[in-house]
Design a protein around this nucleic acid. Structure first.
Lengths: 253, 253
DNA sequence: CGAGCGTTTGAAATCGGTCAACAGCAGTGG
DNA sequence: CCACTGCTGTTGACCGATTTCAAACGCTCG
């Protein structure tokens, strides 16, 4: 792990291309400049290095600048589960804010770099800038929502649906960042995918083979090429919660 | 649904017995008084009534005052999943703050009453009161954490473990509110439990029977009496994430 | 008292897990 | 450059947990 003082870090939040995924979203230029004052440093991680561990005291949250990280929880009995994969612009560590301790281990899947956001300074600044306060709440809420979708997948989808969903989700996140939606490299192993999706590594492998046989995609080790996006979406099934038609007058809030 | 203006509502946050689970936690008496000014009204719900629906615009979040509610998500294809059961003192609606729309339907499992917390006023007040800002973040973080635990259960536990966990979780929440940890009435049906835990209603029923045969508990319809808390905990298995021993010097945050 | 719902129980089918063997690629060192 | 080794991923056979289908039971409420 390699700490870089902010002074030596040439890139600022106010000009960062990831702004639209990250903390500065929706802030005016002046407000975004203020954020630069609280990003005290950045951290470089080599593949496999750990950013924080569960139960570590939490003084900061982290914005992914470069690379990919996974978060995973280790249980008393040694079992572990991957709880998320984090791409550039996404913020790590929010789940532990309440208890001032991290709830998961964060580990780099490839050489990565994260911005350190000191929490106390963020909270101070959020009191000055309603737009930042709002964005901070938005990001926490987004985190809740992401867990919620993952939870829905684990609770109500079959393995095949979960995996199709996972691939589509990755695809759209890459696309949002300007990469190809149809071809990308997985940064994680089959084991990590399986852990994340609540299935065994063999099941992941078998399903990927089945998708390939069905002409939905081509996969060679970690290189994925999606051939039939619609077909995959059809398998993914009930991806999104329904847009409910509102029975008039039946609800007030 | 029955709205009650604050003027007619005798109970205040500052004196509410649920304060230690709810918004006022950790606030000084003066700060808690301030909260009273933003709780504009309360809402009474009859069993089965809906407080809000997914996609409803979100202007307020809700503290459960009396009763129990469930939140559930309906998918495009009609399938639905229960995402949470909410006891007095718990706050509903946080997941939707970011998008200003509710992500789930909230529905009363029994006659209930909730406090309406106007979001814009809460955010204004949070800028004035650091302790409230902090508590608000704590509550959102707690929500993240709750989803996280549920997610871990769905992703890495067998049906038996999930159900044992669920019962223990309910038990401790009742106990925290001053009710018996060993005997309580479920407010939800087998169907709702199954949906929440990602299993079929028949599986719930069979497992409950198995627990009864094993001398772990007695259950008659919705009345549960836990006989062997330790035995149940043993089945629940890896309930909690491990308290990781920290290898010295290997992490900075 | 009967209807209807929620719950329990049984039997058969299926999905996914477990165990085991093997293939393929990567890195190491001779 | 090529064996050797180890790790990751694939595939097959079998097993078990959970689902599915079906039927019966027993509250609760009109």
């Amino acid at each position: 792990m390699n700490r870089i003082p902010a002074a030596e870090a040439p890139n600022k939040c106010s000009t960062c291309v990831l702004g639209k995924f990250c903390l500065p979203l929706g802030l005016s230029a002046e407000d975004a400049d203020q954020i630069d004052t609280i990003i005290t440093e950045r951290v470089r991680l080599k593949k496999g290095e750990t950013l924080y561990r569960q139960n570590d005291p939490l003084n900061a949250v982290f914005g992914v600048r470069v690379g990919t990280l996974k978060t995973l929880v280790v249980f008393q009995d040694g079992r572990e589960q991957v709880t998320g994969f984090h791409l550039p612009g996404e913020i790590l560590g929010l789940g532990g804010i309440g208890e001032h301790h991290h709830h998961a281990n964060a580990c780099a899947l490839e050489d990565s770099e994260v911005c350190v956001i000191q929490l106390s300074q963020l909270e101070d600044l959020a009191r000055q800038l309603p737009s930042l306060q709002h964005q901070f709440h938005r990001i926490m809420s987004q985190e809740i929502n992401q867990y919620r979708l993952h939870l829905l997948a684990l609770g109500s989808m079959r393995a095949e649906e979960r995996l199709a969903n996972f691939l589509l989700n990755l695809s759209s996140r890459f696309a949002a960042r300007g990469y190809s939606a149809n071809e990308f490299n997985l940064r994680m192993s089959r084991e990590e995918i399986g852990s994340y999706l609540g299935m065994q590594i063999e099941t992941v492998s078998r399903l990927l083979s089945r998708f390939t046989e069905g002409g939905l995609l081509q996969i060679k080790l970690r290189n994925v090429r999606i051939i039939d996006m619609d077909g995959l979406a059809r398998i993914a099934g009930h991806t999104a919660p329904a847009e409910v038609m509102q029975p008039a007058g039946s609800h007030l809030y």
